[in-house]
Amino acid sequence: MIWNIIGTWIAAGLTLAIFSFLYKDNPFYKFAEHLYVGVSAGFGVIYVWAFDLKPMLVDRFVAEQGIERWILLIPAILGILMFSRWIGKIGYLSRLPISFTVGIGAGLGITASIQGFLLPQIQATLLPLTTINNILLVVGVITTILYFYFSREFKGKSSYLLKLGIVFIMVSFGASFGYTVMARISLLIGRIFFLLSDWLHLI
């Protein structure tokens, strides 16, 4: 019980210290910031060990048999190569795991984007121009794509297409802005509720 109270007071104090940033930089904010960065970095190290390295490499290396066991050495060696940066002469070896990761990311990204974004979005906009909604959607898609067409300079009358495209983009951003602000306000409400309820017991 006493530990809960102490924990609540520490959390409330750190919340207020972070909020004090709204006034200006001050020692309380600095303390909370450094504590947060340090604790989260430390937590990250433990997390990687507990949820990645140990279960996916160490434990599996012990448990697996045959080729499935030895294949785990490949990611282990790639991981170790990252430390070669500290040894000047062989520092270039650290580029191997980086290029391996970039290659995998790019390769997986191609099909994932086509399958997950491109084709579904094309299909969703294949609409007959029989309603105002459909016309707006189709015109919006065409002009927006033209805005992101970089191989040609749009001058004169064709530049209006780009302007129309940016209007559509901005309208969508405006809607997204309002929607996200509402979501952020709910986060603020959550924090203020913690201060007033758990800490001060006012509500």
Binding site: K30, V37, V39
Partner: peptide, 14 residues
């Protein structure tokens, strides 16, 4: 800095 989202934000702000 850190691999924590808001920890990183606090650090960059600082």
């Amino acid at each position: 800095l850190t691999a924590d989202q808001f920890g990183y934000a606090a650090g960059v702000d600082g």
